[in-house]
Design a protein around this nucleic acid. Structure first.
Length: 648
DNA sequence: TCGTTTGTTGCGCCG
DNA sequence: GCGGCGCAACAAACG
């Protein structure tokens, strides 16, 4: 029997410690082991990825590459510039691969991609091994233990988790690493279709990460640089990497009192330098930190304190409670798949007639990535929210910290999410989730989507009368407004009395502080004087309107997959004078006057009759129509529709 | 009854 | 007497 020739395919598991999948690869005792990363066009073009998350990803890749080299200087992380679905079949042949090993992915996109890869491995006679490693428990097993239903609260998750069994103890970091084999690249590079490019607006130059061939312009298999991606330098102070977080974790956990009595709701969203929590989330996202390793390290400390009869915190507010919520969202996503990320056709998301609803493609039942502007004023409010110029300093400080640093405290996320949706603007949570997707360095699809549904009271949470005030909530944590002074520097010299409501400051006070409160934020200066906008809405008034709207929507009681939502007839159930795009009886399912029509209704009527499982669109060679303004849906595109092929 | 993380008011207490 | 602070009660009302 010849010895195995193995590809270890790194994805969101950029670590060497506690990796069940990596252990499975090493247990094969391979003759050669290729640790690779496939440069995925879904991430490059079809997901919203801001520059700060790119930086963090590249940090994590470089770090794991160095760690591999430290164990075996002949090896490294080999970054190959082609999407996995086209690249892997070629590598199987060129490198005479016998086994492909990777960590299981439960994201809807990841599952579709992996299904395609597994299929091609089968055809090539390559054995595929994958292990769950991204969550405390295998999300599919949790879902099964929960009766095949999404876990919608923490109790369900805990009960299901207990049924699945003990959380696996951490696996040691490997001490040796097999050599890679010869890196033959005697095949053409298939270049992915660069349009639609969801990140076009952030690029200062053309995206060029596929231009230097499969091994990169220096032929060293290094990750692409931000310049190659056409992006400006990152602005975040947070840096990625397994070695960074493992070291920091030791210093976090050395404070046993902090670790053992941690209660999330008691940590301040306004704290900076240092923050009140320890930013493990981006490392968890890229897999630079194992959640099980983290869990067990915390549990060890809590157990020690329990035995010593010292006070300890308990889930859900404790540190391990935070990890349980993460698993809850993963398990819910594992059941609902693509529909988890949208309202339309989501069986567990309440339907609310939000402003700026997503456009949907009724043939696939998926959102297109575009949205309907039902009201120009709401579009303007959305832009002002996203850019941090609402005229509410607390909201603006949070949104500016998010844009600049890529991380904001959990309660800060609550505050701005409530404000955009049910507690202020009555704008679709899907718009907010997209902005977070772009800007967060810790963006985890399952958690981001879950939290937006939570805050908008469309799933997981329902007490919509509990509404965050953009003034009072911030004051509770930061009476002096230091957080605002840091992130909205044009207000830094305003007296404490007006820092949360600068429009109430008399002209003399504004003058003294060197700021004029005026306009809508589109102008930064008036002459030499800094400008800060007036509030874009009357909060008390807006909150009442939202509350009425929520009450009515709850009373109507529709969900994303209700027949009347699917066909657009929901409007008949809403009062025309209510908030949101409720007017008229005609319109698309997203709610508006127009919507994305199904493919092939005109000239070429050969679109599959049952497009629900969009498998057809996922396989190379069956490109979807991109005629006119029509876009492929934002979440669903595989790296399948290739038109461009270039020689290496 | 309770739910990880509301806002406001009013009371007692302290200086 | 009064302002500031911390805390408890309450408001509104979901599944």
């Amino acid at each position: 029997m010849p010895k195995p020739r193995v590809i270890y395919w790194f994805r969101t598991d950029l670590r060497l410690h506690d990796s069940p999948a990596l252990k499975a690869a090493l247990d094969l005792k391979p003759e050669v082991l290729y640790p690779i990363w496939c440069w995925d066009s879904h991430y490059v073009y079809r997901s919203r990825v801001g520059v700060n998350r790119w930086q963090f990803l590249i940090d994590c890749m470089n770090d794991v590459s160095q760690s591999i080299s430290k164990i075996n200087k002949k090896s490294q992380l080999y970054v190959l510039r082609e999407p996995a679905v086209t690249l892997l079949p070629k590598l199987f042949k060129a490198w005479e691969i016998t086994h492909l090993v990777f960590e299981k992915d439960t994201d809807a996109y990841g599952r579709d991609r992996d299904a395609t890869v597994i299929e091609s491995a089968k055809e090539a006679g390559v054995e595929v091994i994958f292990r769950s490693g991204r969550t405390l428990w295998d999300s599919d097993e949790v879902a099964k233990a929960n009766g095949g239903k999404p876990t919608m609260n923490i109790k369900q998750l805990q009960t299901a988790g207990e049924k699945v069994g003990e959380i696996e103890p951490p696996i040691e970091t490997p001490k040796s690493f097999p050599d890679p084999g010869e890196l033959k690249l005697d095949f053409d590079q298939t270049q992915p279709e660069p349009t639609p490019d969801m990140n076009e607006k952030y690029r200062q130059n053309d995206e060029g990460s596929y231009n230097g061939g499969i091994s990169g312009p220096k032929n060293d298999f290094h990750p692409p640089t931000l310049e190659e991606l056409g992006l400006k330098p990152a602005t975040t102070p947070h840096r990625g990497g397994e070695s960074v977080i493992l070291e920091r974790l030791n210093s976090i956990l050395s404070d046993e009192q902090y670790t053992g009595t941690f209660e999330k709701p008691k940590t301040s969203p306004a704290a900076f330098e240092p923050q009140s929590t320890f930013l493990t989330s981006p490392y968890l996202h890229f897999g630079a930190l194992s959640c099980r390793y983290f869990y067990h390290r915390v549990e060890e400390i809590v157990e020690k304190r329990r035995k010593a009869k010292k006070p300890v915190s308990e889930p859900p507010t404790s540190l391990h409670g935070q990890l349980l919520f993460r698993d809850m969202y993963f398990a819910a996503q594992a059941v609902l798949g693509w529909s988890f990320g949208q309202t339309y056709n989501n069986s567990h998301c309440r339907f609310i007639p939000w402003h700026l609803p997503s456009k949907v493609d009724v043939s696939t039942k998926l959102v297109t990535g575009d949205y309907e502007v039902d009201d120009e004023e709401k579009e303007k409010q959305f832009k002002r929210w996203a850019e941090g110029r609402t005229g509410f300093p607390w909201i603006d400080a949070i949104m500016r910290q998010l844009r600049q640093e890529g991380w904001i405290h959990h309660l800060a996320r609550h505050s701005v999410a409530c404000f955009l949706t049910r507690g202020g603007c009555y704008i679709s949570w899907e718009r907010g989730a997209e902005v977070f997707e772009e800007l967060l360095i810790d963006h985890e699809a399952a958690c981001n989507i879950g939290n937006w549904q939570w805050l908008s009271c469309t799933a997981f949470f329902a007490q919509f009368y509990r509404c965050y005030s953009p003034v009072a909530f911030g004051k509770k944590w930061d009476d002096n407004g230091d957080y605002i002074r840091k992130y909205v520097p044009e207000l830094k010299d305003l007296p404490k009395k007006f820092i949360f409501e600068p429009h109430k400051a008399p002209i003399q006070d504004q003058k003294k502080a060197g700021v004029v409160v005026k306009g809508d934020g589109s102008q930064e200066k008036e002459g030499d004087v800094a400008m800060y906008p007036k509030p874009m809405l009357d909060f008390n008034e807006a909150r009442d309107v939202c509350l009425q709207g929520m009450k009515q929507a709850y009373h109507v009681g529709l969900y994303g997959n209700s027949p009347k939502v699917l066909d657009g007839s929901w409007k008949q159930l809403f009062d025309d004078s209510g908030e949101g795009p409720t007017e008229g009886e005609q319109g698309g399912p997203g709610g508006m006057l127009s919507f994305e029509e199904a493919d092939g209704t005109e000239e070429d009527g050969h679109h599959p009759a049952t497009p629900q499982k969009s498998k057809g669109g996922a396989v190379p060679g069956s490109p979807k129509s991109t005629r006119g303004r029509k876009r492929e849906h934002s979440q669903g595109t595989l790296d399948g529709a290739f038109t461009k092929s270039a020689k290496k």
